[in-house]
Design a protein around this nucleic acid. Structure first.
Length: 522
RNA sequence: GGCCCCGUCGUCUAGAGGCCCAGGACACGGCCCUUUCAAGGCCGCGACACGGGUUCGAAUCCCGUCGGGGUCACCA
């Protein structure tokens, strides 16, 4: 019988989707899709006191935005519901009890202090800690006696004390652990709630998970989980431990808590500031702790493409060959394999992510780009909402003219000059000085060229270029002497796309008004 | 510290004994194009952690050293 491949990703409802988590989820998703199987989302909320629904929403939104659909889980349900660990407690308790009955676990009446003391003693004597099982209840009489003392029971795993646990990991190969080094871990607390390592196993079995693809930090948990699977008489899933995603410019695991440290990295900082600037212009004032390149929401708000992010993440620890870099969704699914996942951690490089983003942006048609960018202009208060047809047309012309300069949708705000009223145009001071105050001939040339513009017809890029060429010839000056001054005067900025196209988009009236305004400034 | 994992250009990687005095991409530097800024084109810089084996031959296999990381909870 061929088992249908079923993989899962089990996020905790923390309020945001972590980029490293997405990479793990992506591998799970791809593996399931590759083999025509199912991808399950399960919520690890065993230890969460906060409002789960609220903290879960951003995560589900993130998955949807990225196009990583789940076959079973929150909001879609499924045959193994509920998919929230907090709602499965009775099932876990029944399993824990069964584990005790089968002799693979026991009721333990030690207090946390007593165990702690044993651990300290072992440390002092520099020997590995192994619980003495002094407060292990072997018989019902033991339980009664301990309880008479006012003690409360936890349930501990009764780990083997000899032999080896061999794991055949799909990525790492064979990994061997010594059973004797494993602890009698608590699986059920004194208050009856259960611990992650135990709940995970029960869920993976109940939900018929065939392949556990998870971060390598869980490798050390695997022996005890295998012990639980076997103790309960469950079939073992296959394990694949993917290396964790490392911090930018570092080797340690990427962590959402170390943002301040990452911001010392100039490249990370640059990407962050680029996004932060866009966010602020659309009225999002978010703290670095919750809005930064480690969190998926950052990319969504700033206007990245999901496909670019996924493509980048796919190549973080996986490669098809020595040349293929770009993968469509379908190609990813067709070509992904766990065998080609690297064993070593890969550093997260937001700059390379941006490079993928640029390439994906370049492939979009103008209409697609416009659709992405209109919301930014609306939120920044630069255009009406919904935008009239004429405005859309204008945005399309700008997007066309800007070409590859727009890397993320939010970059459209760099062209705000085309939307501000003529009398509110602000000038880049440094540029204004360099182009309009310092060159002695600037104002005179600009004044003369204003007259040329006033009579220009048609007011399009080709014609305007011709008029400017004629002008410099007639005046005996260079293009450089007039064009920079003109750019600053009409756009307020030193840089931008083609000037003739800029003039044409602005229209004659605006150009003339802006030149007048510039000439009036001292 | 115990256990486990890992170690090719700054970064992501290709490489499964001769195709490699190591290939690609990002970044970086230069040139070209050019009204600015991008984009694009061309060129360049740049790595097998180290030491021993095995072999006619090692980035690839073995051993050791060093280095990095993960994990050691009644967290997930």
């Amino acid at each position: 019988m061929i088992k249908i491949v079923r993989t899962r990703f089990a996020p905790s409802p923390t309020g945001y989707l972590h980029i490293g988590g997405v990479r793990t989820a992506l591998f799970n998703w791809l593996f399931a899709r590759r083999h025509g199987g199912q991808f399950i989302l399960r919520i690890d909320d065993t230890d969460v006191q906060r409002n789960v629904a609220e903290a879960l929403q951003p995560i589900l939104d993130g998955f949807r935005w990225l196009g990583l659909d789940w076959d079973e889980g929150p909001e879609v349900g499924g045959p193994h519901a509920p998919y929230y660990q907090s709602q499965r407690l009775e099932r876990y308790q029944a399993a824990a009890k069964m584990l005790v009955e089968r002799g693979a676990a026991y009721y333990d009446y030690a207090t946390p202090e007593e165990v702690h003391a044993e651990r300290e003693a072992a440390e002092r004597e520099k020997r590995p800690f192994v619980y003495s099982r002094r407060w292990m209840a072997v018989t019902p009489q033991d339980r009664a006696r301990f309880e008479a003392e006012g003690r409360q029971a936890t349930i501990r795993l009764k780990m083997p004390r000899d032999g080896y646990c061999r794991i055949n990991d799909l990525i790492l190969g064979e990994v061997t652990f010594e059973w004797a080094k494993e602890q009698d871990h608590v699986i059920q607390r004194a208050d009856g709630t259960v611990l992650y390592n135990f709940a995970t196993v029960v869920d993976d079995h109940d939900m018929r998970i065939t392949h556990v693809i998870r971060a390598q930090e869980h490798l050390a948990n695997t022996p005890r989980q295998i012990f639980i699977f076997q103790g309960l008489g469950y079939d073992l899933p296959a394990f694949a431990h993917v290396p964790y995603v490392a911090a930018p410019g570092g080797k340690e695991k990427l962590s959402k808590r170390k943002i301040k440290e990452y911001l010392k990295n100039p490249e990370f900082k640059k990407i962050y500031e680029h996004g932060q600037a866009i966010a602020e212009r659309i009225g999002l004032h978010l703290a670095a702790e919750t809005f930064n390149p480690v969190i998926v929401d950052f990319y969504r708000e700033v206007g990245y493409l999901p496909d670019a992010i996924l493509n980048y993440l796919l190549l973080l620890g996986w490669a098809l060959d020595d040349k293929t870099e770009f993968f469509t969704r379908q190609q990813m699914i067709d070509l992904f394999s766990l065998e080609r996942v690297n064993k070593a951690p890969a550093g997260f490089d937001p700059k390379k992510l941006l490079a993928f983003q640029e390439r994906y942006m370049q492939q979009l048609a103008v209409e697609q780009k416009v659709a992405m960018m209109l919301p930014y202009l609306e939120k920044a208060g630069l255009i009406a909402s919904p935008p009239p047809a004429a405005v859309r047309e204008k945005v399309a012309r700008i997007v066309q003219a800007a070409g590859d300069r727009i890397k993320v949708a939010g970059d459209i705000l760099d062209y705000d000059t085309f939307f501000v009223p003529d009398d509110r145009l602000s000038y880049d001071e440094a540029a204004f000085t360099k182009r309009l105050r310092q060159p002695p001939e600037a104002r005179e040339l600009l004044t003369k060229f204003r007259a040329v513009l006033a009579s220009a017809d048609p007011f399009d890029a080709a014609h305007l270029e011709q008029r400017l060429q004629d002008f410099v010839q007639a005046e005996g000056v260079t293009v450089g002497q007039i064009i920079h001054a003109l750019r600053v005067a009409v756009t307020g900025k030193a840089v931008g796309f083609g000037l003739y196209e800029s003039l044409a988009i602005l229209g004659k009236d605006s150009c003339l008004a802006r030149i007048d305004r510039a000439l009036a400034q001292r």
